[in-house]
Nucleic acid binder design. Structure first.
Lengths: 185, 185
DNA sequence: AACTCAATGTAGCGATTGCTACAATAGTAA
DNA sequence: TTACTATTGTAGCAATCGCTACATTGAGTT
């Protein structure tokens, strides 16, 4: 009775592991991400994580790459059908999207990535740069159709949005909301 | 010959320890801040850190408070003698100050504090809020003398500045610099 | 059937983690 | 002196860290 043995070819590779690992760090963060909890979340052992990735550093690097990819596609599916009329309206939309509960795990993780990038941790910088670049591109596509300078406007709105999101993250929502002038956007 | 004994009343308290601990985390970060390295940097043992602070969590909390205080006085000594003429000029000055090499340890640590605050780590939120509040107050004092709305302007410039600093931290300096419109500040 | 080799489990290593038990050394109060 | 209390050193504990040595399994190849 060969019953207890689960499966002889369990199909376990980086590609199948990364989504599970990503889901774990998206809810538990990168700071305390150690091999054994990560492995448990992915249904494996630390032994196998090292087997597949070589060491923790490359695991984190590839994981951050993967998460940047997830973020990118999440933005892709969030493209509005119509264009906003003004930059102000564009900013409102974009902020609503960035503050959406669905995006919150990304935001919480995001500051950890920024911190790691600022401190020079391997892998963090590339992921941060990729995510910003993607967001900039996405924002450019969200600009008003008749905007005189969509690229420059996207950079401006991105700066403003990131500042606002940071103030939100540390409990200064009122500061951020009150500071954006209606004109000038 | 009482020679080898260092001092019978070595005067060691939270107040004398905190500056040394702060200097350590300002250069080495909070992430890997464990008791024994911290103690070594302060010239003590982990044993004594626990003795003075009770446990690591309150140590970190009080340390973050202390660092927020250091940051506050650092801003106080950086108040310019004259006021800028325009918001644009004000923003330039403030960015120059925030990008100053002297401030870089604070900036690198800052993103770690933001990350901890976003994730709800104890002590991080209060420190982040205090540092932002101080910065807002400071910025208000730096606004042009004839500004129609110094408080609102300070909030706006703070949002813009933090967004810019974050983009700098992840290697998107060009994005940030190119995005700020000359008008509208 | 014999061999090969990727995939996996088990067990453990040395280092580090936060923290504690116990004892020794004082300086002060009685 | 005697007793007490605050401060400090020494040793160590259980837990976790990243990682490795070794053995086993099993599917495919010859």
């Amino acid at each position: 009775m060969p019953a207890s043995k689960p499966s002889t070819k369990p199909k376990m590779s980086k590609e199948t592991l990364l989504p599970l690992l990503a889901s774990h760090v998206l809810t538990h963060g990168l700071g305390g991400a150690s091999l054994r909890p990560l492995a448990k979340a992915a249904g494996t052992s630390d032994r196998m994580l090292i087997y597949h990735f070589g060491n923790k550093e490359t695991l984190i690097t590839e994981l951050l790459d993967h998460i940047a990819g997830i973020y990118s596609t999440a933005l892709d599916v969030a493209i509005g059908a119509d264009r906003p009329k003004t930059r102000s309206e564009c900013f409102e939309r974009v902020m609503a999207q960035g503050s959406h509960p669905m995006m919150q795990p990304f935001m919480v993780l995001w500051w950890e990535i920024v911190a790691g990038s600022a401190r020079g941790l391997p892998g963090y910088h590339n992921a941060a740069k990729a995510m910003i670049a993607k967001q900039l591109l996405w924002l450019e596509g969200q600009m008003p159709a008749d905007d005189p300078d969509p690229a420059g406007g996207a950079r401006y709105l991105l700066t403003l949005m990131e500042g606002t999101l940071m103030l939100n993250a540390v409990g200064h929502e009122a500061t951020a909301r009150g500071g954006i002038p209606a004109s000038g956007l």
